[in-house]
Structure formats: C-alpha cells, structure tokens
Design a binder for these strands. Structure first.
Lengths: 406, 406
DNA sequence: GGGTGTTTGTCAGGACTCTCAACAAATTAG
DNA sequence: CTAATTTGTTGAGAGTCCTGACAAACACCC
C-alpha cells in the first residue's frame, strides 16, 4: 500500500475532472482545515471552508472512516447552543516512515498524521565506499525495527521515503544516479531492498531538508532557497510551497556556480566554483585543518571559530563572501522570499551570516532586499530525515483517499 | 511543533471544489483537445480525453454557445460509418488584444482564439522621457483603432495586456513600478487610461516574450530560461509551462548577476554585473560605436559583425562569454530544458552563440548538458507583443467560462 | 439498388456530490 | 421549566458525468 500518489492534478489540460476528483479535493480541504485549527467542530469547518454543514458531515465521516480524523469527547464550550463535537487529526493510525543514509550513519524516523515525529533511530555506520546492497540491507533492518516500534505506538506506516546525499533524477523514479560521498553510481533502491514492495522512494537530502523547513515553519515562506552544505553544496528551491526539482531533477546545483571565473580549478573541470571557497574541504584546508581528521569536522570548525582561531575565522569569512556571491545570482534569478542556511551551514551560521549578508546587501541593489530574509535553518541536520517522514504525511493530507477506507 | 500548520497543499489551500469547477475544467480539456488536433469530431474528442461521447456532446454544445468552437461542414472522411461533424476552435468572435510600449514605438496586435495574430499595428514614437499620460493616451487611441479593425474582421476583444520594458510587481496589479528606459516610476496604467474599464494589464515584455516563445513553439519545452536584451538584460523563467515571476515579480534579473566580482562598477552599485559586459551600452562601447548614434544600434552591430569588423566581433565574443558565465549559474540553479536567446540577442545570435556555448560547455559539467538546448528565439522582437495578445487567449483556453454564454 | 455493418450523435435513466430547508438534539439564559 | 441558540442529520433537489439504447448517416457487399 505504498502511498506513491502522483502529483495532484495541476493543470487543466492534464485530464478531465470527475466527481471523485471533487470529492478528493474536498476531503483534503476539510482535513487541512482541521489540521490548521483543531479542535474544530463540523460547523466550524463548514464556516471556515465554505461548504455546507451537510457536506462537511459527509466528508468528516469519510475521513474518520479512513482513520485520518478522530472525534474527541464533547467539550464544555461554555457558549450557548448545542456543543460541537471536537475533531482532530488522528495521532494514531496512518504514519510516514523517513529513512536516511549519511556518510557516517543510518537513520529512521516515524511521523504521525499530525506531523509529529514519534520516534527517531540512528546508528553510526561508516557508509562511504560500502556496497549499496550491504548498506540497504542494514537500513531495511533498521526500517523494520522502526515500523515494529511504530506499530506498538498504534502507528501504521503508509509510505517510505529515503533521504540520500546524492542526485535523484526525475525519471526513472527510485534511482540514485550518483552519490559521490557514498561512492554510489546508478543504484536502484528497490533492486537491493529485501522486500521490493516496501522499498522506500529516494529523494535528495537537501530537498527533503528544505521541505521539512517549509512544513515545519510557523509562518511558512512560500518561495525560498534552502542552501545546505554537506560534502557538497546543494540548494533546494521551494517555489510557491512546492519543491522545484528542475527539468531532470538536477536543480539547485549551487556548488558549481562560478563565483570567481578565473579562480582555482575544481574537480568538476571548471574554475572558481563555489565549492572551491565554501565547500567543506576548502574551508578545512583554508583553516589549516586536516580534512580527514578524527571527529566531526563541522563541530571542530565551530569550536575553533568560537575560540577566535584566526585562520578559521578567515576561512569562514572567505566562504561566506563566496556564498553571498553565489546567492546574489540566486536572488537575482529567483526573487525568493527567503534564504535558509541549512545542513552544516546552520551550525556555522554565526560566523558565516555576516559576510554572506554583507555581500548580498552590496550586490542586490535593484530590488527590495531584507536582511531578515536570510536565516539559519531551525532544524539543522535533522531536517532531511524529518522531511522524508513528512513527505508521506503531506501526500496523505493532499489526498486522503490514499488511505484505505474503513 | 505544528508541522501541519498550514494548508496541506496547493489544491487544498484554494478552497473547496464545486460541480462548476469540474465543468470548467472539462470545458477546458475539450477545448484544448480541439485546439491541439482539430479538426476533431465529438467522438474523436471523447476517445482522446476519456470523457464519454454524451459528456463531450454537452461540453461542445456549451463551447459552441460561448463562441469558442465552431462546427465545420461535414467532411467526406472516406471511412466506414456515419461521418463526424468537424469541430474547430473558432477563428472569429473572441480575441485578445496585445499592446506594447517600446522606447521607440507603440504597438498593437489582435490574436484570435486559434492563437493566430490577425492584425499588427506599429507606430514609431520616441517615448523615452515622455509623460506616461501622453504615451498612454496615444496608445489608447491605437488600441481603439485596432479594436475597430478587429471588429471588421469579426473579432471581439475579450482582454487587453500591455507589454512594457519595466518591472511589474505581483502586488498591486496594474502597476509599472519602474521602466528606466522610459523614465517611468510607479505608473498605474488604469489611472492614465481614457476608459478605465478597458485599461490593459501591464506585464514585463521579457516575460511575455518568453510565453510567446512557449505558446508558439511546435514542440514546447516546459521549463526554460528566456534571456532577452533590450536596454537591460532580463531573463524570464518558464517553469512547467507557467511563467515564474518570483515572490514579488522580480525574478529573472539576469543583468545584475555578478560575473566578475571585481569587475567594473555598475550603475546599480555593485561590481562586475553581467550588464557591464553584455548590455547594449557595454557592447556598443567596446565595439567603438556611439551609443546614441542614428538608426538601430542592434542592426548596426549585426551589420558590422557580418562585415568582420574586429572590435565588434571582440565585443560580441566578450559579451557572449559573460552571458555564458551568467547562464551557467542559471543552469546550475534551475536545471532548465532549454535556454532561449531573445530580444536583441536573437539578431546577434550568430556571433554570440559560439562563445556562450563554449562557456557553458566548459562550466556545466556535473550534469548532462546538450548544446541544442541553447537556441535563438524564433520570434525575435515580435515576441512580447504576440505574448501580450496571446495571454488573453490562453486564459480563455484555460477557462472558457470567461466567455459570455450564448 | 437494397440490405448489412459500422460509426456518430443524442436521449433517458442512474449514480454521485453538493446545496437547501427542515428537524431533532443538546446546551445556555432567564 | 421554557425559550433561544447552535449543532448535526435527514430528505428533496440540482448539476454533472456515466451507462445503455437508439436513430441517423455512411461504406460495403450482393
């Protein structure tokens, strides 16, 4: 019962609309209203979304039948009239499983329909260079454990999404085209999964981090660029609240934007790419640190910066200016409402933000540009895993008929 | 942590669906099928879009009543069975009016529902620095003439769109925030229009040029960047077949993307913006030509380049390389299916393309990049005006109920 | 030429979903 | 305890599409 829903019918030219489509959308509308303002009575929902109480009643009945909504006990409202029955998004039943493969760990997370992460699992593993089959077998075991534990909490996993530090093309789905830090090339996830029918759908970790940031924000910005540094530098573009993957799925390759055209040669063959200034390896080198030293290099950088270590501060300043330069291009092209620094950048934001901000302020002059638009990620490195778990949740919210009828 | 705080999806955010919405979409689907493959019988449409013949009949009747579709005479098909009655998109009745204000001219164009431009009007006017009221009064007169002439062709203008060489923010609509080449600042079009109810809706000319390119293409690319040079350099982003205007309407400001961070100072206050290398003024200067000489400077450049004038060729090569550098950023960020050189660039494509292409080939290495994706615009300078006229047509195609019922 | 088969367009009945209006249920106010 | 108010449900009605049937219009075959 993979919740692999197609994208919601976007354009009018796609195909004819049916009564079922109408019903589907209205179920989603009601569910969204309950999610946004619960607890809500049927009458409240009716007044809020514009459907009649009769229609809302029918829709709510179906949502309850599918396990998406639960009816709480009657509340003493204190107001005149018959009290409404409080509706909430169900905290049991349907759930989403997020999985993650990092260079140094495997992770799992289960989120309920309310969007709350209900359990986290993480095991340290040096995955770089290991065969995909081995890694995925271990991950499948971790996933099975997580699903079992979730079942004990009354949660039933309806969909599985896997965050990978690599490129996931639009077509064909289910493929990791390359993940340099893992040493993967053209790995079909389902091909290595013990039970192919429960194989997770891979997605780039930076993209999932950006979506998590969006879904998790109190007052979400609809159009923003989410920059996240791991070994490479990736940008995820969220446009009008939806992830933009580009024509082939390669959008957001910020790491190889040219910032100094005549600069040092990059592994990609070009010169002066952003990665040569703001990539992890470049910053470590510039800061005089060994690249493959023990421990978490990002934490080490943060520690040295906090201690006022001059080479580290200089390296971060240099990185920030280069990043600001690359983001100037992004702002000029995309006109986003926000810029979010995620991944490792979030932990280094204190030392990066000033120079990024200064560069942007100096170069983005032909349009209104607010420094507040630039901020570090609130989720940091947990973002991708949470985003993976929430992907299934948001799909169900957008189309509750993906859930089996009661 | 209120993850599911806001509307779950785009569709859910938009409110409940009604039977009328379903009807609207199905009218659009049928109309789109007729437009794409006419002539088509009702049965053909039914087989193609998946609605039953009965439903298609009802929808076609309504489309005929609204004047969007006409029933041609019976055709001798030669096939067995009762012949179908041929349906075509109406070439009379509903039409769109496009208007254009350029630095040196005013323009008007009327397109029918088939998307065919049926009449063009153009008058030379030195509009730079003239008061908006004067320009718009003249344009209104031109528009009235065009509408009268269109009426003689049996066309009834259902919407008016104005292409301007300036910035048109998302909110409020109807406003030209600034048009440097005209000397305009914060001009409300309707405020200066003789009859406010027929005032056209302004839109940036580069955006309209890109849309025209998309709508006019035989096999449209769904996601592309359309670069167009006039006095400034603008890029329009078409994403999944829809114009992306950015959070505020300022997307595509390619002219001020930094290409050489330490390069010459730009009027915008930054250094090394693309405009300093590939802008009209910069190219003319570099080619040793007077900027305000007589005649069309672009035509002059093309002529000299064709004659092998060395400084001109060098200037164009330099411009092309800078443009390639800026487009590298765009390709890395957006992952488009195509890059289109429009506006003045289209006429200089012979000398620009090689260096643009070379720069892209050298710098876009981490993803598949096909040189064929880069091509000059087929419409050239007529694009914006055609796009303005077609905007109304495409709106009607997407929602035929915009037409008055017969 | 006439009968047969095929395809088209339309019509009547049914299913689904929303709206409207009425009503019973549950609570507060007096 | 009665009246007022609000909630949730029910039944009738309208709009839209689907199903199945049917007349109309043509080609093909004898």
């Amino acid at each position: 019962m993979a919740v692999v829903g197609r994208a919601a019918s976007r354009s009018a030219a796609n195909g004819p609309a049916s009564l079922q489509d109408m019903r589907r959308q209205n179920l989603a509308v009601v569910l969204a209203a309950v999610a946004a303002h619960s607890p809500l009575s049927r009458a409240d929902v009716s007044g809020r979304v514009g459907l009649t109480r009769a229609a809302v009643s029918s829709l709510v009945d179906e949502l309850i039948g599918r396990g998406a909504v639960t009816e709480a006990a009657a509340t003493a409202s204190g107001r005149v009239g018959r009290p409404g029955r409080a509706l909430t998004v169900s905290g049991e039943g349907p759930a989403g499983l997020g999985l993650e493969i990092g260079v140094g760990h495997l992770g799992a997370c289960v989120a309920d329909l309310r969007g709350e992460p209900r359990l986290w699992r993480r095991v340290e593993r040096a995955n770089a260079g290991r065969p995909p089959g081995t890694v995925l077998a271990e991950l499948a075991a971790l996933a099975a454990e997580a699903e079992a534990e979730a079942a004990a909490l009354g949660l039933r996993v309806e969909g599985r999404v896997l965050a990978v530090p690599g490129v996931v093309p639009n077509e064909p789905r289910g493929l990791v085209e390359r993940a340099p830090n893992l040493g993967w090339h053209t790995v079909g996830i389902a091909d290595h999964w013990p039970e192919p029918e429960t194989a997770p759908e891979p997605e780039n970790e930076a993209n999932l981090g950006a979506l998590a940031e969006y879904w998790n924000a109190g007052t979400p910005v609809e159009t923003f660029v989410h920059v996240s540094a791991g070994a490479g530098i990736g940008a995820a573009l969220v446009i009008d609240g939806r992830l933009f993957r580009g024509a082939r799925g390669f959008a957001g390759e910020l790491g190889h934007v040219p910032v100094h055209p005549e600069g040092p040669e990059c592994a990609c063959g070009a010169r002066g790419c952003l990665e040569q200034y703001a990539g992890e390896a470049a910053v470590l080198r510039e800061a005089g640190l060994a690249q493959d030293g023990p421990g978490d290099p990002v934490a080490l950088l943060a520690e040295r910066a906090a201690n006022g270590h001059a080479p580290t501060l200089a390296a971060l300043d240099r990185a920030g200016r280069a990043l600001g330069l690359a983001l100037t291009s992004a702002v000029d092209l995309i006109d986003p409402d926000g810029l979010v620094l995620g991944g490792a950048y979030a932990e280094l934001a204190d030392w990066l933000l000033p120079s990024v901000c200064a560069e942007l302020a100096a170069r983005v002059t032909v349009r209104p540009w607010a420094a507040e638009a630039l901020r570090p990620s609130a989720l940091g490195r947990r973002g991708p895993l949470l985003g993976a778990a929430l992907t299934t949740i948001r799909r169900i919210m957008a189309d509750p008929t993906l859930l089996p009828a009661g």
